[in-house]
Design a protein around this nucleic acid. Structure first.
Lengths: 342, 342
DNA sequence: ACAATCTATGGTATCGGTACCATATACCAA
DNA sequence: TTGGTATATGGTACCGATACCATAGATTGT
């Protein structure tokens, strides 16, 4: 015997007016006499009435809600992006629904369907793999605004915001080469994801420019996770000869796995081996950050994506945009010249 | 000239049946002949129809949505809680809306109002201060299920899940005392928050038991932030005499600020000064975590909160529950006996 | 053979808020 | 006085899905 929440008609009855009059008072639209306004306001206060935005959304065909679908908010890279998206959206009275896919295509599909059913006004989405194209086209078919974040999808004409993976990987690899490294291992993320490919591309380009032969044995793949990094590091340092003198982690969590594996192998960083990472990791080492990284600007990525999306939603923009934000190498203490050269 | 999404009536028209028949096909309710079912399914496929859950929610008076309101998902403590909540909710086909208050009462109010208007089925909420009681009663007045997380509010009869702050602070302080520390500084969070009070209470109790006089100069307050920790540490070590030999951070972000301040002051941890923290901080120092902490189990906190909430929503439970989860001291490397005693 | 039951389908009202159109009074200008 | 406009309020339909009741043919039991 739960008491039902009061509706606009309950307020109207109590105030002795029609429902539409209450609506006018609430929204300050049309004409209302001071006296009626007063009575209505008293009735609203007495009943503790709040309007039901479900019915408003149903009428207006808009929910003022956008979805942000990322892989894993446990990673500070994504939480920072999230804050960027939220801050911009809140300024525009848009609410953000946050979803984690854990890089699973099935979870992505589930969320996309759910969110479409709920009449979400727009999507900011991180594809989990090339297969995400199905979900992307599902959204576009329904003419719902969509911005892709971080990872490219081939052959879809859609807005995208991302960091410059190729350039970042290139610069970081060059940095290692300039320190004297020749055997640099690349610990990549999943093979079908564009950021993986592009980071490998930048890595290869830097090697080629320096006339260093590319050894495919030095490139391995796994998830963008600590467990993946650890596994790859243990394998690489146990089985590949000659042993690499520097390790390139394709993201921050992979770097964590690598560092932990190296510790277990009793290899010191940077004295015995150098490590660099794509993406920064706050508090990677206290009191001072330790990892040399190429950092994207995640907050700005989120902001830009939100701005693009809002442009679409408002209808102010109709041409597709591809935004690539610059990255920055931050040199810290995880690298040294290779051991043999010291 | 945006094309409108197809409705159930469009499907019905195309299939040559009534809307209600389409509804029956979709929901597998009532009777439908194989032939009709076929026609309807073809029509659904052709139009790419998906049902509008807004109207369903309006009818059913339920949205299958719960809100999780925390202070800041940048802090891994809250993201981990979030994952616990999400995992349980997803198992029950509930969707989670995540909101950050940044510890600001105004943001909390804004979210609570918005979420109530959207007919959210339940709330899991971290109060920002004692003033949050207004928002809490607003929710309870509307008979919407609510579980308070992490921080107690006095004089409200409401479900709550939290870690054992008093006991945790007590144990951590005892640990320091056993190492020989007598002057232990407490870097607390905001003064009106229950976890602050309780951690101070545990700290004081341990001191009293050891017959160590409580020096109010050794207790300072600020936000649960890195900036707060830094500021408090610089003040404490510059102005208070005799200087404390051990520092107690009331949360992980305060600990970060402290460690960075100590680095700036060229004090080594633990050789020159010991540091402990409430709440763990993943990757606080790579490759191996460094801080000695008392850890709550954030994932479990989130799970428990979600379970309590679901019990309320389903109506299976009507009495209020207060759950206090145990905490655990994790000794690592940030503490040593006080310098003078070495 | 006839009622009872099963199977299949549709009409209408409803959830809560608001757009649209209608109505009615007051006031001013010509 | 007439007409036009500003002010104030209400009735009805609609957004999309579905519960409830109604209808009607097919099937079964006695």
């Amino acid at each position: 015997m739960k008491k039902k929440r009061p509706t606009i008609r309950d307020v109207a009855k109590l105030a002795g007016v029609a429902a539409i009059t209450v609506s006018r008072v609430i929204n300050n639209s049309g004409y209302t006499s001071d006296e009626t306004r007063d009575r209505v306001e008293r009735a609203i206060a007495e009943l503790n009435y709040i309007p039901n935005s479900l019915s408003q959304s149903l009428r207006f065909q808009t929910t003022n809600t956008v979805a942000l679908i990322v892989s894993d908010i446990t990673n500070p890279f994504w939480t920072t992006i999230t804050r960027g998206v939220e801050d911009v959206c809140n300024d525009h009275d848009l609410h953000v629904i946050l979803c984690n896919t854990d890089e699973k295509e099935a979870k992505l599909s589930k969320y996309v369907n759910m969110l479409l059913q709920r009449q979400t006004d727009g999507f900011i989405l991180v594809p989990t793999s090339a297969a995400s194209i199905n979900n992307v086209t599902t959204i576009l078919q329904k003419h719902v605004p969509l911005v892709i974040l971080d990872r490219q999808l081939p052959q879809v004409d859609v807005d995208i915001v991302r960091g410059d993976s190729v350039e970042g990987a290139y610069q970081l690899t060059r940095y290692l080469i300039e320190l004297g490294h020749q055997r640099i291992a690349m610990f990549s993320g999943p093979i079908e994801i564009s950021t993986s490919e592009q980071r490998i591309e930048g890595y290869k380009r830097a090697l080629q420019e320096a006339d260093i032969a590319i050894d495919d044995e030095l490139i391995t793949f796994s998830g963008y996770t600590e467990a993946g990094g650890r596994k790859m590091a243990l394998h690489m340092l146990g089985n590949v000869q000659p042993t690499p003198t520097a390790l390139f982690a394709a993201n921050n969590f992979i770097a964590v796995g690598i560092l932990r594996a190296l510790y277990q192998l009793e290899l010191r960083v940077p004295q015995d081996i150098s490590v660099v990472s794509f993406d920064d990791l706050p508090f990677d080492t206290l009191p001072e950050p330790f990892l040399t990284v190429v950092a994207q600007a995640p907050y700005e990525l989120g902001m830009k994506a939100a701005e693009l999306l809002i442009g679409r939603i408002s209808g102010e923009r109709t041409h597709t945009e591809e935004i690539t934000l610059p990255v920055e190498v931050i040199v810290r203490k995880s690298c040294a010249p290779p051991k043999s050269q010291i």
